[in-house]
Design a protein around this nucleic acid. Structure first.
Lengths: 253, 253
DNA sequence: AAGTGGTCTAGACCACGCC
DNA sequence: GCGTGGTCTAGACCACTTA
């Protein structure tokens, strides 16, 4: 428990101020110079302490402006709803839900045919490097990147259909795909927790110390054919992942 | 994309070596002195580059031994199975499953009556600070801490029962609780992704740069009474979270 | 212009692991 | 004993933000 390093003590002191609520989200921290004088240590030592807090996601730094306590509230992310039918013909489900909450949702859509990486190929059941259809979206909330949502289909299934259209699909891409291959009856979710790659950091404008959840969702028809593979990147500082489960009825032996 | 800092370039170079597989898990990295000479930079700059890779979870450092590429394989974690009945009367489900895989599972159990924190109190439906029964476990695999699993019940429900016994409960604590309050018919999972607290880092022996999933599971009876609140801490470098879902049968309007 | 964080250098001393 | 990473100092210069 005891941390006898100087930077560890400083980090510990500041952590208490933040987690106790004495320093609220948005509050500025003392500058590096001030903290150095206060503790009688050199600037690199102060920076080492602040770096710890940044890694823990408690603090974010802005050159020229200083450091502030981060807001750690999270939005609800429900994987189960990601395949629900859309409720409006002009807005998709993501847009509908958030508009109802008075937020400003938007998204960028980009469609490409690209060679499947290992994770996608395995799940689509094709060899690595096979060309596949990728429908890539970045969702924004109030102008800030919120999450990444890329949908993959085999070229055989989706090539030349409305899914290739890099715009909103009024009836929903789910419906288009269902007509082609049949209804999706079950799905498998896999969620990895890790630090973002530099590319993800850039696309989602993540601050240092923000972990991400990577969510792969693979959908199957009744006869076990793969309908779609979905790839989400969910910043840890903006989401809670929520599942509602009803236990199967079974006897305990 | 371009990173024109010295430490950014070094990190980028080393990252390619690791992600391409040229440096495999377990391989040693060059020492700080060697890298400094190779790039013609001072040691703090080398350390800055290596720190980035540690934060990304690609590398771990050991004083006196050097740095090695980390193993990033993950075990499957299925929240849905965490409430399944046990298959053996001498081993719980966690122990049973892993024994079958030839791993060496073990766990430490500790039972306490403690005052509920905000998250636990909200979910149990009691005021913050109310004394509750906490059954706290740390699960180990091959001697290394693997995850944290704390189960909470109201004192009213579990006080004085077998659940308070800080040892393995042969019939399973689920069964004991079911007799007291009735069958659990549904559960809500909440998964938070964040960096670990210093306490979690210590209990799970996490290396720097390892994010965690925090999984709260709240179980309900048919008449919506809370059966249990479960609190898991899942190191991101050791687990994949997996859900199997069957879509509800419904018509698309 | 003044203050902030971002980068980088050139040293120093220590604790740890291995031979 | 030697090499490793861990800690810390005392400077320097830069880019950025705010006033």
């Amino acid at each position: 428990m005891a941390d006898d390093t100087l930077h560890g003590q400083m980090a510990s002191d500041l952590r208490v101020l933040i987690t106790s609520g004495e320093l609220k989200p948005g509050s500025p921290l003392p500058s590096e110079a001030q903290l150095g004088e206060q503790y009688g240590v050199s600037r690199p030592t102060v920076r080492r302490a602040l770096q710890t807090l940044e890694q823990e996601g408690l603090v974010s730094a802005h050159a020229g402006r200083g450091r502030v306590v981060r807001d750690r509230r999270a939005m609800v992310y429900r994987p189960q709803q990601e395949y629900e039918p859309r409720r409006s013909s002009t807005m998709d489900r993501f847009t509908t839900v958030l508009s109802e909450q008075g937020r400003q949702p938007s998204q960028s859509i980009e469609v490409a045919v690209e060679n499947a990486g290992r994770m996608i190929a395995q799940r689509l059941g094709v060899p690595e490097g096979t060309p596949v259809v990728a429908r890539k979206r970045v969702r924004f909330l109030d102008g800030e990147p919120f999450n990444i949502n890329d949908t993959y289909h085999t070229l055989e299934l989706a090539g030349g259909t409305a899914v290739m259209n890099p715009e909103d699909i009024p009836e929903g891409s789910n419906v288009v795909i269902e007509r082609l291959i049949g209804r999706e009856v079950r799905a498998v979710d896999e969620i990895y927790i890790r630090m973002p790659t530099p590319d993800e950091t850039r696309r989602l404008k993540l601050s240092t110390g923000t972990p991400v959840g990577v969510h792969y969702c693979t959908g199957y028809t009744q006869d076990e054919r793969v309908v779609r593979v979905e790839y989400f990147v969910i910043p840890g500082d903006r989401h809670v992942i929520v599942y509602d489960r009803v236990h199967p009825v079974e006897t305990i032996d």
